[in-house]
Simulated scan of single mutants.
Amino acid sequence: MESVQTQIQNKDGNQNIAQQEQPYDGFLYTWGMNSGGCLANQKKNKERLFLLNLSTGGFFGAAISSKNELYTWGETKNGRNGHQPNQNFILVPQKIINLQNISQVSCGNWHCLALNNQNQLYVTGHNKYGSCGLSGIDEIYGFKLNDTISDIQIQSISAGDGFSLYLDINKSVYSSGFRLMHGNKEDQHQYQIKKIKELEGIAIKHINSGFCHAAVVTQEGGELYTWGSGNFYQLGHGNTKSLKTPQKINNLSGIEQVSCSRGEKNCHTIATHSNGSVYSWGSGYKGKLGHQNSWSHEDPADESRPRLIQYLQDKGITITKSISGGIHSAVLSKDGKLFTFGCCSDGRLGHTKAEKRVYLYKEALPREIQGPFLNNKIIDASSSYYFMAAIAES
């Protein structure tokens, strides 16, 4: 049976949300700027998939099926989606033939990481700075086993822009890649996967790589460590100082999960507390921190330290996952509803744009997406700078 796709069009004619039907209970939705086929919404896919989780990167995406097979789509440049660059774009999700038993996938801006159920790491894409943890090769076209870390049992992966983070079964954090982002003091690119020395002896439960900053959450107490560029207060330490090594954010604990923004400018961070509340900080560009501040270019409403999103608290909305885009944000509630806020240009919020307000349209408070999956529980969601994707039950 062929998959069924539905296009929701705005008044300006641009695509906003595309639905691809899946068997059993799963639906894949994408919305935002459709560059390089990143929305994967061409009506040519004859294979029906039930997707479990997904990741979005620089104009490409990836998802894992119920059979633990990896599918990717979008731009092939630099080998980022794991398909050979004999065509510029993959317009519908295509299976990576040589990979099996995949349990996790993480899309960076120019590279992609995949982990199988035997803790083996596969890498593809741009590796000039060592983001894939291999030396002597700038581009990797097709997923390649990183066999340099046979002594490390990785259980979690996170791909950023030119760097990557890895969490092993002993709760230790490793990294590779760009010199200002790998978290170690050495002022040079890190072409091999190495332990972050500043975090030695600290058990970590969650890692996240953004475009130009990173964060980890401790196992005990849910404390948060950040490093990288601090130009927009995104590190949460009360200043715009950049840090080469992880530093703990004072007076913040109980965090379960964190998400660092996917853009080079107007950076922010958003984190989920164990009680279901959400904190955000950094650039307040177009209301993407969710505090309903009166944003303007003259007064950007930045937050230099973590601030509770009071609106979600007042509404009694319990959040399980926070998601940072580039100039927008999203949160996924316990009951499977997806809320977005910030800049809505290119349809990235998934809300119908008001006429004649295409670029200026923004949401200063978290707003539930009212669309084709209104009555379907969202089981996972992800965002890159320009587009978002979600998997919903039918």
Rank of each mutant, 00 (worst) to 15 (best):
I255C: 12
Y225S: 01
T124H: 02
G230N: 02
P246Q: 01
G201I: 00
A301W: 03
I97K: 15
R348N: 03
Q188C: 12
F27W: 13
E355A: 12
S304T: 01
V358D: 14
D187F: 13
Q219W: 04
I317H: 05
Y71V: 05
N231I: 07
V173C: 02
G32N: 12
K44L: 15
I391K: 09
N275K: 12
C260I: 01
I379R: 13
T245R: 00
R262E: 03
Y174W: 08
I319D: 06
K286Q: 13
Q94E: 15
R367T: 15
V92R: 06
Y279A: 02
G282S: 02
T240S: 12
S158I: 00
N250E: 14
L308M: 09
K248L: 10
V217M: 10
A392H: 08
K185M: 09
S261V: 02
Y361H: 15
E303M: 07
C344N: 14
D138I: 00
S150C: 10
Q310A: 03
M388V: 08
T318V: 13
Q292W: 11
L167K: 00
D314A: 10
K377A: 07
S55M: 03
N239M: 01
G284V: 04
H351V: 03
L167Q: 01
K321N: 03
K241V: 08
Q15H: 13
G221W: 03
N88H: 09
A18W: 08
N109R: 06
Q234A: 08
G183N: 02
G316W: 13
V331N: 10
N10P: 05
S304L: 04
I319T: 09
K353I: 12
G79H: 08
S175H: 01
N116H: 06
E198D: 13
A214N: 10
N98R: 12
F373I: 02
Q87I: 14
I157P: 02
A18H: 11
N119T: 00
Q313M: 02
Y361I: 05
T148G: 10
N78H: 14
D25V: 12
G347L: 05
P366A: 07
D380E: 03
A214S: 12
Q120L: 12
S394D: 15
K185H: 09
S383K: 02
S283V: 03
G230R: 01
K46A: 13
Y359F: 15
I202F: 06
H126K: 14
V358S: 15
H291I: 07
T76F: 13
G228S: 00
S394R: 14
L134V: 14
I97M: 14
C132Y: 04
L54G: 07
F59K: 13
N68I: 03
K11V: 13
L180R: 06
V331Q: 08
Q192N: 15
F59I: 10
N116M: 02
C344K: 10
G287V: 09
K67L: 14
I169A: 06
I207K: 01
